[in-house]
Computed example of a mutant assay.
Amino acid sequence: MRRTREEAEQTKESIFQAGIELLATKGIHETSMSDIARAAGVSRGAIYWHFENKEALLREIRGRLQSFYKSLVDAAHIDSAPLAESISRAVRKLFKKYRNDAAFRRLQDLNIKISVLYAGKDSFADDIIKTEEADIQLFCEAVEGSPATNSCSPLQMFMIMESLVGGLLIRQYIRQELLSDEDIDAAVAFMVKGFSGIEEKTKTIHQEQ
C-alpha cells in the first residue's frame, strides 16, 4: 500500500525529532544514521529516503531556524512604529522563546554546535550562507530609507543585530544560564538605544545642514 503524503511527512518528522534527541545527547560525530533510524523506529531505507545523509539532516535543522531572519524582515515592514522598536520586539520574542520553549532551545543549541563543527567545511558553509542570503536581502530592502541607514548600511545594521543576538544565545548555551526578563529587557534596551541614537544623530545632522 502506498503511503499518503501526510504519512510520509509524519515519518520524516519522527526521524527529525529522533535525530535532534540523539545529536543533542550523544553528539553529532558520535551519532550515526543507523542510530537515528532505530530511535525513530524506521528502516535504513526510510531514513535515507528523507535524508540522504547526516549532513542533510543538519541542514534541515538550520533551515528550520530561518524563522528568526523572517521575523526581522516582518518587523522591518511595520511602518506604524520606529524601526528600532519593531526590530526589538522580534528580538525579545526570540529570547523568550529560547528560554520558555525547550524544543526550540535544543534546536538552537544544536545549531551552535553545527556552526562550530562545520565552520571550515566550504560546501556546508556555502549552503548556510545561501539559505540566509534571501532573507538578509529582504531585510536590507525593508530598512532602506530609514534614517539609521544614513549612518550605517542596512547590511551593517543586520550584522550588528545578528552579532548581539548570536552572542547572547552562545553565552546562554555555554553557561547553561537562561536570560531573565531583566536581562532580556537590558539587551533590547541597549539595541534600541543604539539604533535610536543613530537615527537621532542623523536627524540632527540633516537639520544642521
Score class of each variant (00 low, 15 high):
R62P: 00
R89Q: 13
A186L: 14
A18Q: 06
I20W: 14
N100V: 00
Q209S: 09
Q207L: 12
A81L: 12
R99W: 05
Q10M: 10
I28P: 13
L155I: 12
I114S: 05
L107K: 15
R38D: 14
Y69S: 08
K12D: 00
K54R: 08
A142R: 14
G166C: 00
P154C: 03
D127N: 10
T131E: 08
E9H: 10
A187G: 02
E30H: 12
E144F: 07
D101G: 01
R59E: 08
T31A: 08
F124A: 11
F51T: 05
G45H: 08
E21F: 04
Q207W: 11
T4C: 01
L57C: 09
D135I: 01
A102K: 15
P82Y: 09
K12G: 02
H50Q: 05
G41T: 03
A37L: 00
E21I: 00
T202V: 10
D101L: 06
E52C: 02
M33H: 09
Q209H: 00
S146M: 07
R106D: 02
K113R: 11
K70T: 10
E9N: 08
L72T: 13
E60D: 12
F51M: 05
E182G: 05
F68P: 02
I205K: 15
A142Y: 08
S180T: 10
L169H: 14
R92S: 10
H206W: 02
A18G: 01
D185A: 15
E200S: 14
N100A: 01
A142C: 00
V91E: 00
V143C: 12
H50A: 01
Q10A: 10
I15V: 09
A24T: 12
S14Q: 15
D185W: 15
E133D: 03
C152V: 11
E141M: 09
L22W: 06
M161V: 04
M159D: 03
L107E: 06
F124N: 04
I112C: 01
E52I: 11
D101W: 08
A102Q: 13
A125M: 08
A18I: 10
Q207V: 06
G145Q: 01
I36A: 14
E7G: 00
G167R: 04
S14V: 02
C152T: 03
V116E: 06
I20F: 11
V192G: 04
I136R: 13
C152F: 12
S86Q: 13
S86L: 10
C140T: 06
A103R: 14
R106Q: 13
K203M: 14
S153M: 12
A40Y: 10
A103W: 09
A148L: 15
E162Q: 03
N53R: 13
S146Y: 00
